[in-house]
Amino acid sequence: MPADYDLDELYANTYTEQDRRAFETQPESSKKFLVAWSLALFLGPIGAQRYYLGYLPTAVLKTSMFCAGVVLMILGLPNAGLPLVGVVGAWTIVDLFLLLSGTMRDRADHRLQGFTRFGGICAAATVLVLVGWLIVALVIGTSSGVAG
């Protein structure tokens, strides 16, 4: 049966000129993609990009979870604080992917200004930053494990 399918025809031209025009005619937000992306990348755990895009309830929830996790760790309860910070970290990575895919829009569901121009560059920069953070975490983790 698989020989019956013409995969070239199935996957050819999946993003057509009509799709491009439909995307470009969608309403554009006054919010800038670069600002939202920068906020998500550097201040994501406190929900800065969500405040910027107008998602106040989830922004407040994200900020509260992060602050609660940090306070619990400061109080000497890492078993309670680390999971909260971990969930917020994962949520931040999901927010970055939503922004970079064009899925996250402003509160009025308008696409962000500059997404088509800067999306690819920002995606590459995001990968570099995340890999850099991973390397720093690995170096710190192995150094502290060796030291004692």
Rank of each mutant, 00 (worst) to 15 (best):
M1K: 10
P2A: 15
A3I: 10
D4Y: 09
Y5D: 14
D6P: 10
D8Y: 13
L10K: 04
Y11S: 05
T14P: 10
T14W: 14
E17K: 14
D19A: 07
R20V: 11
R21H: 08
F23M: 05
Q26T: 06
F33M: 08
V35D: 00
W37C: 03
L39T: 00
A40K: 04
L41S: 12
F42H: 13
L43H: 02
L43Y: 15
L43D: 01
G47W: 00
Q49F: 02
R50P: 01
Y52T: 08
L56R: 15
P57W: 04
T58M: 10
L61C: 11
F66T: 09
F66S: 01
A68R: 06
V71T: 06
L72D: 05
M73A: 00
M73G: 00
M73F: 08
I74F: 14
I74Y: 09
L77D: 13
P78W: 09
P78S: 10
N79A: 15
P83A: 09
L84P: 04
G86F: 02
V87N: 08
G89N: 12
A90Y: 14
A90C: 12
V94C: 07
L96Q: 02
L98C: 05
S101M: 06
M104P: 01
D106S: 08
R107S: 10
R107Q: 12
L112F: 00
G114F: 01
T116C: 11
T116H: 10
G120E: 06
C122T: 05
A125K: 00
T126Y: 04
V127H: 00
L128T: 03
L130G: 06
L130N: 04
W133D: 11
I135K: 03
V136P: 12
V136C: 14
L138M: 11
L138D: 11
V139T: 09
S144Q: 15
G145R: 14
G148E: 03
